[in-house]
Amino acid sequence: MSQPVLNITDLRATVEDKEILKGVNLTVKGGEIHAIMGPNGTGKSTLASTIMGHPKFEVIGGSVQLDGEEVLDMEVDERGRSGLFLAMQYPSEVPGVTNSDFLRQAMQAQSEDGKDVPIFKFIRELDKNVSALEMNKDLPHRYLNEGFSGGEKKRNEILQMMMLKPKIAILDEIDSGLDVDAMRIVGNAVNSMRSSEFGCLLITHYQRLLDHIEPDYVHVMMQGRIVKSGGKELMKRIDTEGYEWIKQELGITDERVVIEDEPKARESIGSCATSDMFKI
């Protein structure tokens, strides 16, 4: 296997006709860990979702290439099979589908020759990763994310990443909902994947996670683009001084492009009947 390269060029995207990404440029190579920081509402999560192909976001310009292939021309599942992985901020719950059945099907979909994933190898690897993430042993038999705590969901995203071994992983606020111990465990897990065949893009607005996963590059996002890039020293300065100095330096008064709201659970409710409707 070779060193993967994700090339994001002048990426622009809208949601409900409002432009959120206003020209993002970034290259992530195998062996590198990039952190994208920035206050809320500056387009960080939109970047992650747009790369993965969430239907809510419409690309209006630019390109995203993985190893020279245009990702933006692919369906979501093709993006997954091409080696992209997004650890989501709000992973869906899927009742009735067990974690292990789902993982096995996903691995099956990703196996290059379409061969069956050997069951014993699968179980061995799953067990190993479940222990590495200090998750409950019954996890494989539980339904996908159903009834999981926030922290469990995040660990489950990392578990899927470890099993699927993507070329490029984007971790969207993987630290939210994690306590100190879980942060260390997740950090160790990501570090264990470090190799020239794996590149990683961390999205966070806290510096805490970066105590555990040391990034090679740090980028600050404001107003829908990357406004400043640097190394660890940039991260340290943000940690002590916040973002105000960057805004001043760049003459930015309002860094936001969107007020990100949390997804609501959707449910249609049947009609409530009245008492004389039924007589049996």
Binding site: G80, L86, E267
Partner: peptide, 30 residues
């Protein structure tokens, strides 16, 4: 409740490489 399959669930599952049809079948079976 009466509704369609949740598109967020489909997106989530597809992002792991399974096709839309496979994702739908998994959700319905589940």
């Amino acid at each position: 409740g009466v509704g369609k399959i949740d598109e967020e669930q489909i997106y989530y599952m597809m992002s792991r490489g399974v096709t839309r049809r496979e994702a739908e079948l998994l959700i319905i079976q589940g």
